[in-house]
Design a protein around this nucleic acid. Structure first.
Lengths: 339, 339
DNA sequence: TCTCCTCGTTGAAACGTTTTAACGGTTGAG
DNA sequence: CTCAACCGTTAAAACGTTTCAACGAGGAGA
């Protein structure tokens, strides 16, 4: 089926050596215009497609970057990916996206494959920062939206503890004293950090630690948020929190749906704060108060760090951005008379 | 920095030939357990990572599929991608996602690269179906969410004309006689088809053709929807449509935001129908009536067709699914007394 | 005319695997 | 005791590029 036309077929057809064809492909300026035309014509005519494997095998380089994303369905990550792609593009590299879907095994498989492919570099938001599958294997790796604990690689992160603190402080200042923290699994560092921030806020306000109720979820998707909402409503009304801080916006949106379905009003019966401030947060049934992160910038910066990795005297850096609270209707209680 | 340990280093270290190492890697059962252990130990010890380029060059095969997506930020496509990945996974292949971001040039670059990489197959939702960059170059290509006009490749699509018809018929039956069709650019086939469906619905109902007002957008993102909304509100109120059919949910959500911001109510002042029924449609400020497509199934089926491509007597197939209207609050007019 | 450059082109050696046919050694049947 | 079959292992030939040193042909300067 495939006659598989190679560089030497082109050479023969154009009456030159294969080295010349290679030159036309890689250093067009070095070859005489007339020959160049002849070779290009031959390429066109034979439908030649350069074999990247062979090229890479010999040349060593690879022209592609990969970003292993935690959940491709989460707009937060696609926004980060946009930043990554822009930066990669500026450097003349293409970007392959891989979706680990929060699955340890998939993540490992993709990492293995990418190492074997000898991509120029790997960006990853790992399922588990401590995991051994991140060990150095020759290809530079930069952590995105996670902080590298050891100094063995670069990372770009956002201060999640601060983010959690901002969110819960806002709830406390709005008068809430029973607050649910929704998120999970705890193996994800972000969840832990945001939870930690929540605890810090409570401590700062001088509230007892049991002002927080932790509702652990099995993941960070909308469906899990709905589940959590159902559980929340099931609590005895005396013990039921009056506000919820969700580890991301998807959970918050799920929670919102659950509330609406059960006939509870947001924020009157339950105030809700999300995290990430994805585009859909503002368009939600009740526009969502959320903690905003510099998404594109996260991706862009991570890529720049990655590209700097193979500079001669490289030192691993850890960049940390600040999050920002965006207040919307889901917490600006109507009970206080607003509107 | 990289000592670049190869298969022969491993062989030497384990006291065997490189062929045996290769066997351990590819046909572990054929080599004696003792030797296998020895080789595996050497691999571990030297931190050997197989060079996929070399493997692929020699073996011909490539273990990866690619999906070139029109807009990675659109949940519709990530849902399709989930279906693709599941199916690819079942076949023992990995999936690389590429985002053309509706850009002709990027699409071409990615296609070029993927052909050069000799991936096992390419799935694509192209910017422009007629485009020459889809020409056969040896790697099988299957169109996703687009119908192949010629018989040169497989495609999996949804009946977009029917979808448009369903949506607008629903609006007409709800009593609307001035309807905006929002979408663009017209170079995208889906936009054309859905528009065509709208016209058909109008014709079927015996309404004049100018019952439809076409609002062309420059893209299919939320921001474009907001723009369209602003333009819509700017129309003289006598001429202003009472309903809008958007080419996808992102546009519809943007339109919704614009309406809210301008103080208009949905559906009372403007009924809205979206398309795709993404997860966020149900969670919107006003839950969105939308046209649902079988997303995962779309991806899964496309992948199966792709994998069938290199069977001996392959005939290109065109699968077409039926869409389904999901009615929610954005069209169930409160004016009729419902709640 | 001779020498020295420059320019465009080329032959051949890599790159690191997979694969094939062949190898020697052991085993079981006759 | 012989022979065939089998088993685990191996040497060597690909795979299709890139790269590098070397080459010949002109042209310029002496």
């Amino acid at each position: 089926m495939k006659p598989s036309v190679g560089i030497r077929d082109v050479a023969q057809h154009a009456g030159v050596s294969n080295a010349t064809v290679s030159n036309v492909l890689n250093r067009p300026d070095v070859v005489a215009p007339a020959t160049r035309q002849r070779v290009l014509a031959a390429i066109e005519q034979l439908g030649f497609v350069r074999n990247e494997s062979a090229r890479q095998l010999r040349a060593g380089r690879s022209r592609v970057l990969a970003y292993v994303v935690l959940d491709a369905a989460n707009p937060f990550f696609t926004d980060v990916a946009r930043g990554v792609e822009d930066a990669a593009r500026d450097a003349g590299l293409a970007l392959f996206l891989c979706n680990s879907a929060s699955d340890d095994g998939r993540e490992r498989e993709y990492l293995e494959l990418l190492h074997e492919q000898r991509v120029e570099g790997i960006l990853i938001t790992p399922v588990d920062t401590e995991s051994a599958q991140l060990a150095d294997r020759g290809t530079p790796v930069v952590l995105v939206d996670r902080e590298a604990t050891d100094g063995t690689r670069c990372s770009v992160a956002v201060d999640d503890v601060l983010g959690g603190e901002l969110a819960v402080t806002h709830l406390i200042e709005s008068g809430h004293t029973r607050i649910a923290v929704v998120g999970g699994p705890l193996s994800i560092q972000q969840v832990r950090d945001r939870h930690e921030g929540a605890r810090r806020a409570v401590a700062n306000a001088g509230l007892p630690a049991d002002a927080l109720t932790f509702l652990e979820t099995r993941g960070l998707q909308v469906g899990e948020g709905r589940n959590a909402g159902d559980r929340l409503v099931g609590l005895p009304s005396g013990r039921r929190p009056t506000a919820a801080f969700c580890a991301n916006d998807l959970l918050a949106l799920g929670l919102l749906q659950s509330m609406t379905q059960q006939g509870l009003r947001v924020p009157d019966d339950l105030a809700v704060v999300g995290y990430d401030d994805i585009e859909f947060a503002a368009a939600a049934a009740v526009p969502l108060t959320s903690v905003r992160q510099p998404r594109e910038q996260l991706g862009r910066t991570a890529t720049q760090l990655l590209l700097a990795e193979n500079e001669p005297d490289h030192e691993h850096r850890h960049v940390k951005f600040q999050p920002e609270l965006v207040v919307r209707a889901s917490t600006s209680a109507r009970r206080t008379g607003v509107r």
